[in-house]
Design a binder for these strands. Structure first.
Lengths: 323, 323
DNA sequence: ATACTTTTTGCAACCGGTTGCGGTAATGAC
DNA sequence: GTCATTACCGCAACCGGTTGCAAAAAGTAT
């Protein structure tokens, strides 16, 4: 059915090895035979079988991209950028969704490992120990979490948090709250650490909460009780849920309480009031992670940590404190 | 490095073919040898190499999923569902983004074809002719577009449009507008056809427009000029852009103009006012498309058309007409 | 005990490519 | 004109599995 390298060889009167070389080692074959072979191949509609090639070369030209939840608006830009960058390098990408389940995540890595040259782990839920064990079988690049001795792409939430807190205190807010994320989240821990380190600010931690609008809604009572007038939420979805819930209680944003999100996802840009937020360079993270991964596939294992800048985007959900 | 079937064979004192059968044809091997082999395999951490297997069996256990734009919020739920369903059947999925470029789309299909058992084409931008040609090389299921003689999953936008128009006329709106999508879009054509077929309604078509908030913003002037008080937009993003633009002109939604979107994406659910919209069962479409594809991989080519119901979700962006 | 099945296993070819090695012809040096 | 290089190409083994065929082992009937 499909046209193979032998069909091309026969049709152009050369040995298969010559055809093979015409494609993957052009300098080893006479230019005139080469063009003839290529013409025949084109004519027959020959396409090299990458899986077969992988068998001998050891390079599959595939990578795996594992995320906790594809539908979480944080990930699509990252996936898109990673995919685009991979394509540039002539790589295909397997995308897998773990549904936030570490068990599934491990299994996925296991079955994927033979078919890929490396995998991108985005916000993995696995334990560090498991990740280190799995590392023996396939190169990783970890995004959005720090794992000792492993190439990593991080976004500097700490800086984002500092900017956000400064923004709020600059507006006159004295009591602040941080609505945290899931207990296992590395980002959430980072945010807490950064906030706690700012001695000049009085920040209450409220959580853990699920990383969705529901998490924000659930936190409304605590936020009000805390007496905070400036709130930083784990992410934009939580922030939106929070604003929603505050509105239901008759609390105006930003009139009475200022709210800042994290991620700068589309829904935040379109919400009303438009969300002030810490922008995460997710697309850049995807792109760079792929470069790192494919770099470390050829040369030897990088294990550096790349930290990407975040920034505060001030929109309409923050305003001056009215004491 | 990696442990192969021969390592297992040697370690358990049998021939490789026996090991192979222990995995893929259990009934052909003595139960006691089988358990022994399996134990050794487990012990050595053996994982069959799917790519190698594919070479002889012709089944890669991979599928391709091609979409125009991963970051378009319409797709992630579909991707997620398709991926989950594929996993259930022990399939992996390549996700590729074409950036709305037919050229890229074709190239992607070409290089993917040898590595997959079938591909899901979501809202393809390719011509029908090209799709039919490519079909020779790999089984397709097409989502969100009708291609003659090809297994297809559609969502009944026509019905959605009728419901939306009825909803608007029911609220007393006499002059309606349809802000259409890109000129190549099958969905956009369907919407126009459905609206035009409703003789009792007076609908002006405004477009084409890009399928984003910018498209909505750009259409504002025309919408106002049309005198319509009820507007149906190509999708939620366009609707949000439109509402945004109308607000800038001091036109209240739904006070003066009612707006309906399509897709029921997250940003729409969170926008203010909350968007009335035609919900598309994208997750179901992804799931069913995979089933169709994997079904047609084994049994012979289905070429039926599956049509999924859409529904109108009334929220806050539509209200009574004030004449 | 013999002949005939049936089960279990090994052998070897094959899937579609790649690659080290060796052979042949052409080129260049002398 | 001879010899050493070099350029080009074919041969055959190999990657990690699967599978048709046949041999060996075990079971059954006579």
């Amino acid at each position: 059915m499909a046209v193979t390298i032998r069909d091309v060889a026969e049709a152009s009167g050369v040995h298969v090895s010559t055809v093979s070389r015409a494609f993957s080692a052009p300098h080893l074959v006479n230019p005139v035979t080469r063009t003839r072979v290529l013409a025949v191949a084109e004519d027959l509609g020959y396409r090299p079988n990458r899986a077969a090639r992988a068998l001998t070369t050891g390079r599959t030209h595939n990578i795996g991209l594992i995320v906790a939840d594809i539908a979480n608006p944080f990930f699509p830009p990252l996936i898109k950028a990673a995919q685009a960058q991979a394509r540039l390098r002539d790589y295909h990408v397997f995308v897998a969704d773990t549904d936030e389940d570490p068990q599934v995540e491990e299994e996925l890595i296991q079955t994927l490992t033979k078919q890929v040259d490396g995998v991108l782990l985005c916000s993995p839920r696995l334990t560090n120990k498991t990740i280190e064990r799995l590392r023996e079988e396939v190169p990783f690049v970890v995004v959005n979490r720090r794992v000792k001795g492993m190439p990593t792409v991080l976004m500097d939430v700490g800086r984002g948090v500092r900017l956000a807190v400064e923004h709020l205190t600059g507006l006159g807010h004295r009591r602040l709250a941080l609505v945290t994320g899931p207990s296992g989240s590395w980002t959430s821990k980072e945010m807490q650490a950064a906030a706690a380190a700012m001695s000049e600010a009085d920040v209450t931690f409220l959580g853990p909460n699920p990383p969705t609008e529901l998490g924000g809604l659930a936190a409304v009572t605590d936020v009000i009780a805390s007496g905070a007038t400036g709130v930083l939420a784990y992410n934009d979805l939580v922030a939106i849920g929070l604003i929603e819930g505050l509105a239901e209680r008759g609390v105006d944003v930003p009139g009475e309480i200022s709210v800042i999100g994290v991620d700068d996802i589309v829904p935040g840009r379109l919400s009303r009031p438009k969300l002030t937020t810490i922008a995460m360079p997710t697309a850049a993270a995807g792109r760079i992670a792929v470069d790192l991964l494919l770099g470390s596939v050829d040369s030897e294992a990088t294990s550096g940590v790349t930290v990407l800048e975040t920034s505060l985007i001030v929109r309409e959900s923050t305003g001056e404190a009215h004491t």
